[in-house]
């Protein structure tokens, strides 16, 4: 077998294993619930039968591993369980399925994240590479100071500053991103403008700094000096000698920051009242709606693992040592 294929398969296996272990951690969340949580969910006046029925539904009368297999089996089929909310002490169950709650919100979150990625990734790479090439100059120092300050700000400050200047004082963009499934595409884009801009500012700052560091590190290699000593043009040095070796570090920077985006989305969704998975998760945490929290956590963690795995695979696939084995 080609070593690249072997290494990629090994990484995929490792990724799956990580996902499996993470799912166990998320699953065991329910194990740590205090004993009286049924009361919190069903209300204090819940009858014993209702409580017993509820516990049966959760399978608390069965051993943990059986429940895990049931749970992960249903998750694999897209069934994320029933929400805790909407249950009454009388035993009437108006709860909705978690999948039904999440589906429309997931597409909203993906829309916002995707829109941000399209703007932020090229911008950050260009800023990072240029800062590295002109390092030590005024441009580099200004970009450095600005990004360091941006990194230090909480996302909600960036968000509210943008609202203050671009929505309240100068009403250019709407300050609420209250989209529904019926919102037409361009209106959706306008409504997402401020959340997207907030995320972009934060992500670009991180990503640009990391890109800069990676490129500077690369340009210090002896083979770059050798290329210069061959009298090659600076553009040739960069394109022929630096770029082929830059994919791995750049892929890592991009993946790391997209993973960061996944987290940043939570706060931004709350600020702009954007109906995404992040906001759903925060609401579920407040109401201690564990099945929804678990499902959201699983989605976020899965995305995170997938992104890092992709970066790994890009690094492997562009590594000349693996591409051309001895």
């Amino acid at each position: 077998m080609h070593p690249i294929l072997a290494t990629v398969l090994q990484r995929l296996g490792l990724g799956l294993l990580t996902l499996f272990l993470v799912s166990i951690i998320i699953f065991s969340a329910i194990e740590f619930l205090p004993g009286d949580f049924t009361e919190a969910v069903l209300g204090q006046s819940a009858t014993e039968e209702t409580v017993a029925a509820f516990r049966r539904e959760l399978g608390l009368d069965q051993p943990a591993y059986v429940r895990y297999i049931d749970w992960i089996g249903s998750v694999a089929q897209g069934d994320l369980g029933q929400s805790f909310s909407g249950r009454a002490s009388s035993g009437i169950d108006r709860s909705r399925s978690v999948a039904e709650l999440i589906a429309p919100r997931l597409s909203n979150t993906l829309f916002l994240a995707g829109m941000t990625a399209i703007v932020a990734v090229p911008l950050a790479l260009i800023l990072g590479v240029t800062a590295a090439l002109w390092r030590g100059g005024i441009y580099d120092r200004v970009v450095n100071a600005v990004t360091l300050s941006t990194i230090s700000m909480p996302e909600f400050l960036v968000a509210y500053l943008l609202i203050l200047f671009l929505a309240t004082l100068n009403p250019i963009f709407p300050s609420l991103a209250d989209v529904t499934s019926a919102t037409p595409f361009w209106e959706r884009v306008t409504k997402c403008a401020l959340p997207c801009l907030t995320l972009t500012l934060v992500i670009v700052a991180h990503m640009m700094r990391m890109t800069r560091a990676a490129i500077i590190n690369l340009l210090a290699s002896p083979y770059i000096e050798m290329a210069r000593l061959k009298g090659l043009k600076p553009s040739t040095v960069i394109l022929r000698h630096a770029l082929p070796n830059a994919w791995a570090p750049i892929a890592n920077v991009v993946a790391f920051n997209l993973a960061y985006l996944v987290v940043g989305v939570v706060v931004v969704e709350v600020v702009f009242v954007y109906p995404g998975v992040g906001q759903l998760m925060v609401d579920a945490v407040t109401s201690r709606d564990i099945p929804v929290v678990q499902a959201c956590a699983l989605i976020f963690a899965g995305t995170y693992i997938l992104l890092n795995l992709t970066a790994d695979i890009v690094s492997i696939a562009t590594n000349p040592r693996l591409l051309h084995p001895r």
């Binding site: 619930l33 929290v293 959201c296 956590a297």
Partner: peptide, 21 residues
Amino acid sequence: IDVLMAIPSLIFALMLLSIFG
């Protein structure tokens, strides 16, 4: 620790807070 770090920390924190209050 590799496994623990595979869950974004804010998400992990939210999940744990929903359990422990």
